[in-house]
């Protein structure tokens, strides 16, 4: 589903599900390709619900997270860890960049323009038409353009992530996909569906590849009592 490129960057408007999608892509890469996977958390805009908060769980799956400067993970500082530069040198590792929200998220990538000169990168836009800044396709397209400008790289794919969290219905997904399909300017790479409401017959119904998301960002009030004595 990810294709042959070693580098994938996930961008989009605030709260469209970039982190959830990035984490799932990293997990899929680690499982399928048996290579070292690094998830680079460049979300310097959002400070809650970041992939770096799942460091230990992902390490167990063979995924390393690189995020803000060490010791400052909980600060509202846009500090990048110096080890981020390593991912460009280590040509054997697969890398997923989780960019921050909106066009500002793209700015961070622009910082690595030098490193990205000789290597092709997937720059995929996550779209959830239930989010305020994705409600209209014209806004989504404007954002894709802005991200391209800020990142100094063209957006080259779209990931459809239509959902209303745990209140999502099949009908919602259907309507969301229909709307996203009209974003013809960018190729639609795949549709994501949360495992809770995924059904195999969806593959046929929507006629696009589906990535089933396992829920990795679980809130305290959502935790189950499975490991109680």
């Amino acid at each position: 589903m990810i294709g042959k490129r070693r580098l994938t960057a996930i961008c989009g408007a605030f709260g469209t599900g970039k982190t959830e999608v990035s984490v799932n892509i990293a997990i899929e890469l680690a499982a399928e390709q048996k290579k070292r996977v690094i998830l680079v958390d460049l979300d310097i805009v959002n400070l809650y619900f970041r992939s770096r908060d799942k460091r230990n769980e992902l390490a167990a799956k063979g995924i390393k997270i690189i995020s803000g400067a060490k010791g400052f993970e909980n600060a509202d500082l846009p500090a990048l860890a110096p080890e981020i530069l390593e991912v460009f040198a280590q040509k054997e590792t697969l890398v997923v960049f989780d960019l921050g929200g909106s066009d500002y998220g793209g700015t961070v990538l622009s910082r690595f323009n030098e490193q990205l000169k000789d290597e092709k990168i997937n720059l995929w836009l996550v779209v959830n038409p239930f989010r305020p800044f994705n409600e209209k396709n014209k806004d989504t397209l404007a954002m894709a353009e802005q991200i391209s400008v800020r990142a100094r790289l063209p957006v080259n794919g779209i990931i459809a992530n239509p959902h209303l969290m745990n209140q999502t219905t099949i009908e919602d997904i259907k309507q969301g996909v229909e709307q996203i399909k009209q974003l013809e300017r960018y190729p639609l790479k795949f549709l994501t569906v949360m495992e809770d409401y995924y059904k195999p017959e969806m593959e046929e119904e929507f006629a696009i590849p589906i990535m089933v998301l396992s829920k990795n960002m679980i809130q305290p009030w959502e935790q189950k009592f499975t490991n109680l004595s």
């Binding site: 709260g15 959830n128 239930f130 989010r131 305020p132 209303l164 209140q167 009908e171 919602d172 709307q179």
Partner: peptide
């Protein structure tokens, strides 16, 4: 589409 939108608490306050 459903009348609901997906929003952050902060965005919901503003809207």
């Amino acid at each position: 589409m459903s009348k609901k939108v997906l929003m952050k608490g902060n965005e919901a306050v503003a809207e």
